[in-house]
Amino acid sequence: MSVVVFVEVKNKVSKAAMEAVYYGSQLGSVTVVTYGDTSEEILKELGNYGAENILVCRSLNESNDQALTNLIVAAVEKTNAEFVVLAQDQTGKGVGPRISAKLNAGHISGAIDLPETSNGFVVKTNVYSGKAIAHVALHSAKKVISILPNSLAPQLNQKDANLEEFSPDLGTFGIKVKELKSQGDGVPLPEAELVVSAGRGLKGPENWGIVEDLADVLGATTACSRPVADIGWRPHHEHVGQTGVAIRPNLYIAAGISGAIQHLAGVNGSKVIVVINTDPEAPFFKAADYGIVGDAFEVLPRLTEAVKKFSASQN
């Protein structure tokens, strides 16, 4: 069975890319398709997770949905692939549905597990904002699977990947990128493995230093509740929840957030949740693994010190 896996690789192979390649290798023989000027050495690392062939389109340098769709579909035609696997990230959300429409292939949007094939082809995805899981069957010959980031632990699956330049005709398109406003070098929230988040309990934007200090020592990304973004204490892209970003980190630390149902809907995919709140009745404790009933203004700095001490002891 032939599988095309689409990844984006810049300076290093991201966890999302490892996950996609590993997932593909569990379905069949993997041909990775990618683009840009990333070095051969970095691309060949994809072989560690099961890539056998790597097709790289050097002439494409931006993430244009239509160009990428044509690139991926050309790779499917070249390899006669039955599956396309990619990450359900910002690029994937634009490209996944297009490929599936173009190939007339059923699409799993946000797979959280490998397929179950004892009776048809069934993959689990999160629905109702993480409050339920749907088992979705695909009925088409070709299948497109977009993986929700941080859903499975990619394992080493050593292959000697063969690299080939690939430049099919991608056409010309009506979107022009004028500018990219970077959010800095930090890990973006949807891909973050460690997240420190705070809510209205922090009382004002001037108090976020203690949140950022903890995030810094952990190497975590910061997030916030919706009202905090709405009043402008924090930027909108930090708003997590049902109407903000949905995240699935390994660790989510929430300080001064009550744990409203709409907030939980965006963070309930976190593997471990730590809640810091002065109110022992705060609903968030029901969804927590570890709870601290206490004042965030005292607990956060103390936790930062404890993490520093721990990191020093590890070196």
Partner: peptide, 12 residues
């Protein structure tokens, strides 16, 4: 033709 269908749901 529908290309996919939900077989069942479960609660986490």
């Amino acid at each position: 033709e529908p290309l996919s269908s939900v077989v069942k749901f479960e609660l986490p």
